[in-house]
Design a protein around this nucleic acid. Structure first.
Lengths: 283, 283
DNA sequence: CCTCGCCATACCCGGCGGGTATCAGCCCCG
DNA sequence: CGGGGCTGATACCCGCCGGGTATGGCGAGG
C-alpha cells in the first residue's frame, strides 16, 4: 500500500462523499473513485458501502481508517524527524519541542523549564501551546518531541510516559453562582448545573457532538465562557489557583483523579528529551 | 513521502550498497540511485555518504532508517488488520493471534489458554512461537494481536502492556559442570564461565556480534547447545523447572529481575484481546 | 415520470518509474 | 605508476499508470 492510497481512502472515509473528498485532495472525482476501487480490489476487501446518498464505512473500512491515520502519522513523523535531525548540523543547537495544553499546568511548565535550563548541557526548549487533544497528535506526527498530557483525558496509547503527579478536580463556575457557597459538590451535581450546560469539545475528527453547550477548543476560551455564565466545567484542581475574581472553583468529591504525565515517542534517542524527562520526574 | 521511497531507502541503508539493495528489491541499480537522490533532494537532507567503497549513513539517515522501519511496520499493520477484519464476516470466529517466545513460559501459556478458553464468549486463539525478539516485530506489523514479552529483554516501546509477574534468573549449565555444586553464583561469575562462552543472539538487523560463542535464535536450540557443553546462559528461573537430566540450573543472585508482560498494539479495539489480557492479569 | 445528485465508466494524455548502456572516480594490484 | 575492476552516477528510452474531461447508470424525491 502506498501512502497516496491511504491518504485518498482517509479523505473519502472522513468526508463520506467522493466529490468533497476529491475537492479536499485538489483532484477530480473519477481518479479518486478508481484509486479506492483498486485499493479494495488489491486487499480483497469492501471498505465502503456506496449508497445512492453518499457512502458509509464497512467494518474493515473503519479498521483501515483508524490504522491508516496512525500509519500516515508515522510517515509524517519520519519525514519531520529526519529533516529536524539535519538542521542542527550547521545551526548552533537543536531546540527540543515541548507540547503542552494552552492554559493548563502553567506553573508546572515554568518550574520544569527553569529546572531543565539549569542543567548542564541542556538544549533550548520551544514551547508549543496546543488546543485540547492536539498534543498527542503533534507527538505522533513528529511536530513535537515531548508533551505534557493528562490522564484520563488524553490518549497516551503508543507513547512512553512517566507520571509527574496526580490531583483532584474542581468545578469551575462564574463567581456568584449559588454552588460557590457549597464546600464541595458531587460528580452528579456537575452533570446538570441549572443554566450552565456542559461545553462541547472537538472529537478526534474535529467535529462536535450535538447539544446545548458552547463549542470550545482550548482552556482560555473555556474559562472566558464560564466567566460569561455560558457554561461550567470540571477541571484539574491546579487551574484553580490562578482564577481571577470572576471565577470560582468548588472541589468535586467523587471525580476521578487526574494524572499529569510527560510523554515522548517510543524509541526516542534524543539526549535533550531524556534530560527533560529526568528533570521532570525529579520535580 | 511514499512507502515505495521508504522501502528503497531502508533497503539501501541496510545493505549499505546500491547494487545489493537493488537486487533485494528485484530491480536494477540506476532507478534505485535516482529514487534515493530524489528523496534526498525533496527532504533537502543528505541521507547517505557515497564513498567509493560502498555507502555509509549520515546522522539524519540513521534517524530516517529507524523512523522508516516504524512507519513501514505501521503501514503493513494497517493492511493486515484490515484484511483480517474482513474474513470473520463469513467465517465462524476470528481467531486471535498470540505470539510467544519459543520454549519460554510454556506453563504460563498453557494456564492462560485454559483459563481464557473457559471464559464465556472467548474466541479461538492461534499460538505463534517466535524466534527471540520476533514477538515485538509481529505485534508491530499486525501479524500478531497480542504477545508475551520479557522485560528488560524485549523492546516494549510503543505497546500497551500489563505486567504478569516477575522472577529471578538462573544460570543454565550442562549437568556435571563444577558450578552446579554451588548453591548460587554472581552475575560476574556468569560472564566468564571457563570453557563455556556466552551465546550470541541476533541483533535487530539479523546479524550477529563477533565473539567465540555459538549463534542462536531460539531457546530450544540454546538449551541443546548448553547440553552439548558449547555455551551457558542466564535465563528466567521458570525455564528451570522442566530441564531434563543433561542440564542444571544455579540461581544468579544479583541478576536483574525479569518481568513477564502481556502486550498489545495501542488502540486495539478487539474484544478478544481485551478478554485475553483480563484473563492473564487474573492468573 | 422527470430531475437531480452521486458514483462509475470510458477514453485520452503526460509524467514518471523502470529498463539498458555507459561514464566517472577510486582502490588495489601487478 | 598505470590498468582493471569495483563502486555509484548519468543518459536515454519506453510503457504504464495517475490524473484529466465527458458521459453513463441508478436510486431518491418531488
Amino acid at each position: 500500500m502506498e501512502t497516496r492510497e491511504l491518504r485518498y481512502f482517509v479523505a473519502v472515509a472522513e468526508e463520506l462523499h467522493f466529490g468533497r473528498a476529491a475537492a479536499r485532495l485538489s483532484m477530480s472525482q473519477p481518479p479518486l473513485s478508481r484509486a479506492v476501487q483498486q485499493l479494495e480490489r488489491r486487499l480483497g476487501v469492501r471498505l465502503l458501502d456506496r449508497g445512492t446518498r453518499g457512502v458509509t464505512l464497512t467494518g474493515p473500512g473503519a479498521v483501515l481508517l483508524r490504522e491508516a491515520r496512525a500509519a500516515l502519522a508515522a510517515v509524517e513523523a519520519a519525514e519531520r524527524r529526519t529533516v529536524r535531525a539535519a538542521v542542527p548540523a550547521d545551526e548552533a543547537e537543536a531546540p527540543v519541542v515541548l507540547a503542552t495544553k494552552a492554559g493548563a499546568s502553567s506553573e508546572l511548565v515554568a518550574k520544569l523549564l527553569d529546572a531543565y535550563a539549569a542543567e548542564p548541557g541542556s538544549a533550548p526548549v520551544d514551547i508549543v501551546l496546543c488546543a485540547i487533544g492536539d498534543q498527542a497528535r503533534m507527538l505522533r506526527d513528529g511536530r513535537a518531541d515531548v508533551a505534557l498530557l493528562h490522564r484520563p483525558f488524553d490518549d497516551v496509547a503508543g507513547f512512553d510516559v512517566e507520571e509527574l503527579g496526580t490531583e483532584g478536580q474542581v468545578l469551575v463556575l462564574p463567581s456568584g453562582h449559588p454552588f460557590t457557597q457549597r464546600p464541595n459538590v458531587s460528580l452528579a451535581d456537575t452533570l446538570a448545573v441549572p443554566g450552565l450546560p456542559a461545553p462541547r469539545w472537538p472529537r478526534d475528527d474535529g467535529t462536535y457532538a450535538d447539544g446545548p453547550g458552547p463549542q470550545v477548543h482550548d482552556h482560555t476560551q473555556l474559562l472566558q465562557l464560564v466567566a460569561l455564565s455560558r457554561t461550567c466545567v470540571v477541571l484539574p484542581a491546579s487551574v484553580g489557583v490562578h482564577l481571577n475574581e470572576s471565577l470560582a472553583a468548588v472541589p468535586v468529591l467523587d471525580a476521578p483523579e487526574v494524572t499529569t504525565l510527560i510523554a515522548w515517542p517510543p524509541h526516542s534517542r534524543s539526549r535533550a528529551v531524556a534530560g527533560l524527562v529526568r528533570t521532570a520526574t525529579r520535580l
